[in-house]
Amino acid sequence: MVERSLCMREISGTITKIVCFFSIMFISKFSRLGAQAFKGLSKAPLTIPSRKSFFPVVQNDSLDASSRKLFSTTNSQEENEDKQKISVTFFDKDGEQEIKVPIGMSMLEAAHENDIELEGACEGSLACSTCHVIVMDVEQYNKLEDPTDEENDMLDLAFGLTETSRLGCQVIAKPELDGLRLALPAATRNFAVDGYKPKPH
């Protein structure tokens, strides 16, 4: 499992480099435009959307964050931009995956951005329990605001509920949550649910 994860990361790194190469080719073309965009963005105060924010709001945030990254030209800006993302590790039945999540983005959205198989039947409208995640550290769990009645109503119906269960759509990235570790309930299930197993290289 660990081997696979390392292997994946190496390859993923290579791919990132290739993509970066292509990106840079185009970035030069749009650098002026980019600088303007960055100027505009940097004026906007960083706000954490309300916990009930649905996808559109969250998406805007992700857009901002990615634009910032793209148009950053100096190290200090890069560092600054890194601070606006937190590290979150998802554990599923196949292993673990660490991702960077922009402040203000929900874990459901972040999981989908990164092809993590977290269901989201109602797309974050608090009408299902399919994006159920288990916060693996109690300390981290305590940093979250208490679930609302509506979230609790849905958690009532979640498969494999634990003391530190939350809905992924309601856990919003904030600086204090850096290093958050989340388990998908599937990780705790005994039977293999997916016939597909990637072969090691």
């Binding site: 994860s5 994946m8 990361r9 390859i11 993923s12 791919i15 990132t16 993509v19 970066c20 292509f22 990106s23 185009f26 749009f30 992700s62 964050a65 990615s66 634009s67 990254k69 793209l70 993302k85 995956q97 991702i99 960077k100 951005e113 990164n114 092809d115 597909y196 990637p198």
Partner: peptide, 21 residues
Amino acid sequence: AGPPPLVFFSSASIVPSFLPF
């Protein structure tokens, strides 16, 4: 062609929408 296992660990977003590709 089946899921590309190689992209499973992708991370942040950097490609802007207006790029030719």
